[in-house]
Amino acid sequence: MKCMRFMVLIALFVATLTVAASSDYWLVRDSQLRSKPIFNSGGSRIDQGTAVSVIKSDGVWRKVSAPGGKTGWLPSYELRQSAGVVTQKKDGSVLGMLIRSTSRLFGRSASEDVEQGVVATIGVRGLSEEELKQSKPNYQRVDQIKAWASSAPKARKAASNAGLKAVKVAEIQGASS
């Protein structure tokens, strides 16, 4: 068992290294490859799923090179480092659902997996509108989750272990207010 865990960690570590070395990013949605690191600076359309390499960072902006020799700026949050953990296993139903629903995101190869029948069951269990409407309260189940609750000191310690520090941040206003 311990050995298994160790192997998984090694595999994760290697996967992380591979991702970091290739510096491949995916565009998570259709966007504009901007000529300057400014939101309304104009630019050419770049499709969701396009793989890009990051050349330079400037605050929230990333200068990227895209296929066809194009370069331009994208906001960092539209980029995702490779497909990450999500694509590491392709035989589970949960993952199959993810691949299917994000097939546009993860490119053609993931769609092909689904088409080849790697994923047998695709459906929504549990929290569809219909199932929610039929649901009745299950108090035993909801009271069981209390056992996992964290105390404030434990949460603070875990945050501190990851180098997180609480800071004062004022509320932000919406565009209309």
Binding site: L127, K136, V142
Partner: peptide
């Protein structure tokens, strides 16, 4: 309790 009945933890 109604939500977790539809989808368990």
């Amino acid at each position: 309790a109604t939500l977790v009945n539809a989808a368990p933890p």
